[in-house]
Design a binder for these strands. Structure first.
Length: 265
DNA sequence: TACAATGTTTTAAG
DNA sequence: CCTTAAAACATTGT
């Protein structure tokens, strides 16, 4: 489920626990999302620590603990963060449970494409600091976008937009949404997008990110009804703009949805 | 039953 | 070193 704005929404769920000490840590030792983590060290550092603050970068979420630990969480395809009653039992796909006096902070992911990272110490780890420019940040200019598209010149634009090294936070539905709003066919080679198309694409990338953060990111409200968003999931839908039939096809292993009339090749 | 699901990593080839 | 493309990963629901 989670792309940029959904990730922000899930980060916010754990805000209820900001400032409170962790009294107990429960982990799913064998599960894939915790692979590579020294679990005894994680439990030792987090037990008694206070959850101090949290941020997101694209699809990544970072939690800082006082005095000396950082947790990174990627939700993968089906991950979610939630708050439960303090004594709620750990369930089958709960990979990490941080218990506080008044609540339990839970990371659940049944499909297990998500990933937890951990770093001890007061310093921010490289996996939190060495990250590409976000779409809504100042360095993400049209020139920056042009360079990114040239680096993926032969790749269909839809697939290029899913590259987290250039477009952190953009996922399958956001990429379809941006291209539909920009009237660009998903199959077009990224390197062939220039001029007015490039300017439009840049603007739509930023506005789709901004507006989804204001709607989905805040209260998990739906994106605007005028967007492709609500129509792309099921086959047989129609274009909100021209009311023509939408097309679905697999492109580079992912489902793409577009309007052949509004987005000609 | 077989396939698809809002994601990344690995592997291989050019 | 860089780019491209497909398979693999694990689970659930249709």
């Amino acid at each position: 489920m989670p792309e940029l704005a959904e990730v922000e929404y899930f980060r916010k769920q754990w805000e209820a626990g900001h400032g409170s000490p962790i009294v107990k840590v429960e982990v799913h030792a064998k599960a894939r999302p915790l692979r590579g983590i020294p679990l005894p060290e994680l439990v030792r550092h987090l037990t008694g620590a206070r959850l101090a603050s949290s941020t997101t970068h694209g699809k990544q979420i970072f939690f800082r603990f006082h005095p000396d630990a950082t947790l990174g969480i990627h939700l993968g395809m089906t991950g979610r963060l939630s708050v439960r009653e303090a004594d709620a039992p750990q369930e089958k796909h709960d990979h990490l449970v941080l218990r506080q006096a008044k609540r339990a902070l839970v990371f659940t992911d049944f499909r297990m494409f998500g990933r937890v990272r951990f770093a001890a110490g007061k310093e921010r780890p490289a996996w939190e600091t060495d990250l590409p420019a976000e779409v809504l940040s100042a360095p993400f200019t049209p020139a920056y976008l042009r360079d990114a598209l040239q680096r993926r010149a032969r790749t269909p634009i839809k697939a290029a937009l899913l590259d987290q090294a250039f477009f952190p936070g953009i996922g399958n539905w956001m990429a379809d949404e941006v291209l539909w709003q920009a009237r660009i066919a998903p199959q077009r080679p990224a390197g062939a997008i220039a001029g007015k198309d490039l300017t439009t694409l840049h603007g739509k990338l930023r506005s789709v990110c901004r507006i989804s953060m204001e709607t989905i990111g805040k209260e998990f409200n739906d994106a605007p009804a005028s967007w492709l968003f609500s129509r792309r999931w099921k086959k047989g839908g129609s274009c909100p703009r021209c009311h023509g039939p939408l097309r679905h096809a697999t492109l580079r292993g992912r489902t793409a949805c577009w309007c052949p009339k509004c987005q000609p090749k």
